[in-house]
Design a protein around this nucleic acid. Structure first.
Lengths: 335, 335
DNA sequence: CTGTTAGCGCTTTCAC
DNA sequence: GTGAAAGCGCTAACAG
């Protein structure tokens, strides 16, 4: 493996000049520059990143800690982050906390040891509850999850608004008994439940919420239970793609026809939602924009560590499909 | 930030002793060990990884380059790899080549610059066609994709066997006109097509294959075309989850009833396949085992760089669901 | 069992 | 515009 000194000798210059050329710094004659580049190429020289980082005290690396890599939402966000990061000369370390606060702590610790220039994080609920970006030795931007008073830069969906509109849509279509299954493990789930609640209360309807662990089986179980009881709801809302899948499974298991017997709606425009019988009505999230906004916030925070906390709130896109077609039968039109 | 010398002073010992204690090396008295640990804790010392790597010439980092992070198969594999890697004291850098040979080359280059101890890779077809593990400066293990004579350690499904069994199942159930949509961009797709071909030929049936780019829309289009023509197939097989989704979309679009009018089967037991009307028959891959086997091969290769090339071939699991129920109507029983 | 010391390969003053 | 030289923080001989 060729080292910088080999390149210097080959080019007949000092290591300082080689370093300057490779870093693209000014103050090098054209001739020297050319000779160094030729030598580097001839020797297939590649700088030792460990040495460079040690000396320069910069890693040009950002950490991305997602709470669940199996969730397509985070997969998409991570693609955006990666694309943007490399455009800005930053490497990305992608970590999956698996909704486990311990793993999350482990990775945050790792980020510190790695001396990353910054971190993008979708925090678990316990961490978020007392989260302060200033507690860490590096810049942090939150994505997807963040509470009202959280002292950190963040990029989130307007969860309350999106859930409100989704619920309102159901109400407009004539549904009255609407239940909401939401993720108990994230701030996002709670905010979406809040949006549902406000829309229901505004229409003087009775709330029916179920806080669940973010797992398909949980939603499936809750669906079977709700729809099997007396006074079953006319519509079911899920606060994320996982729970939506569970609802769809439960509905199918009971052999109910959607939307005639049960309307269904949720979050995340996943590949399969248009496949399920009449197509599922969902709020689509602008995943790529979320990722891009996150890295932009982070880069600005790195450049200006002490600037005021900023928050980017994006709007969800309501996509109406057959699963929430207007309720034909019994609905009394009375507001 | 405390450095090793600060810890040494605080503990009243030399940096060498601190280094030994922190590395867990023998030859340190219990007392010294205790004092060092106390000092490290008191100062909240964390070793500078860049310095450690520079000096020790080890990174304890493995690279994982997947060809498409959006494919749930790779998501699952990466979780397994990550779990196992950390158990063995290795960090993981996860990269997404997005089925793009340029990105793939970029990441392979990055791996070299990072001086990783090894790489796990699911190669694109162009790279695989002339792949030799020995061409790289570090140990490599292939995962999911590999050809007969590829000179590299690899962990793959027995694609031919799995596709053969899947096709055979369809034939046993009375289907004769069976078309196969397979991914043209990976060795895996081709091998699965080969398994399909052998089963069809053994039963004296006519092949009907479509090589497609690995995208949902491609499979959807091919499905519409095949089923819209005269002599439409009685059954459709997809070589992976993406194409299977496209088939399901196409079938739904045409309003056909599965399996009465068209049987469907494919690869990858994704969350949504049991949701689609009668449930989809698929070959499930042991994703976690694949990830685990890959890292075990890699660790052994790192320990024994010159050992003979090894290959782990895992068996797929045929899960029969309603989408391939026995063909009731016209089927002549004649073998 | 412990301490001293020479670098790992690079960037970055500082002189020229 | 260029080069000499001083480390970045750590590990691993080596000497005691």
């Amino acid at each position: 493996m060729a080292r910088i000194i080999d390149v210097a000798k080959h080019a007949g210059v000092s290591v300082a000049s080689v370093s300057r050329v490779l870093a693209g710094l000014p103050g090098v004659s054209e001739e020297t520059r050319a000779r160094v580049q030729a030598a580097a190429k001839a020797l297939d020289y590649r700088p030792d990143l460990a040495a460079r980082r040690l000396r320069s005290r910069r890693t040009d690396t950002i950490g991305l800690i997602v709470s669940d890599i199996r969730n397509p939402f985070f997969t998409e966000v991570s693609r955006a982050v990666e694309d943007m990061a490399y455009e800005h000369g930053q490497r990305v370390i992608l970590c999956n906390a698996d909704e486990d606060p311990e793993k999350e702590a482990f990775y945050l610790e790792l980020m510190r040891n790695e001396n990353v220039s910054g971190v993008i994080l979708s925090p678990t609920l316990p961490l978020l509850s007392h989260f302060k970006a200033a507690d860490y030795g590096f810049p942090i931007v939150l994505v997807d999850r963040c509470e009202r008073g959280t002292e950190a830069d963040a990029v989130v969906l307007d969860n309350l608004d999106a859930a409100y509109r989704l619920t309102e849509h159901l109400i407009e279509r004539g549904y009255r008994k609407i239940a909401c299954l939401y993720g108990a493990a994230s701030a996002t789930g709670q905010q979406r439940y809040e949006g549902y609640s406000q829309a229901m209360m505004r229409a003087n309807l009775t709330l029916q919420g179920r806080a669940l662990r973010p797992a398909v089986a949980e939603a499936r179980g809750a669906t079977l239970e709700l729809l099997g009881g007396r006074q079953p709801p006319e519509a079911l809302i899920a606060s994320n793609g996982l729970l939506l899948l569970g609802i769809a499974e439960g509905v199918r298991e009971l052999g109910l026809i959607c939307p005639a017997q049960i309307a269904v709606a949720g979050f995340d425009d996943l590949p399969w939602v248009r496949l399920v019988d009449p197509g599922l009505t969902v709020v689509a999230q602008p995943t790529y924009d979320i990722g891009r906004a996150a890295i932009e916030l982070l880069l600005q925070r790195i450049a200006q560590p002490s600037q005021a906390v900023r928050r980017v709130v994006l709007r969800g896109d309501l996509i109406v499909r057959g699963s929430t077609a207007a309720r034909a039968a019994t609905a009394p039109a009375g507001a």
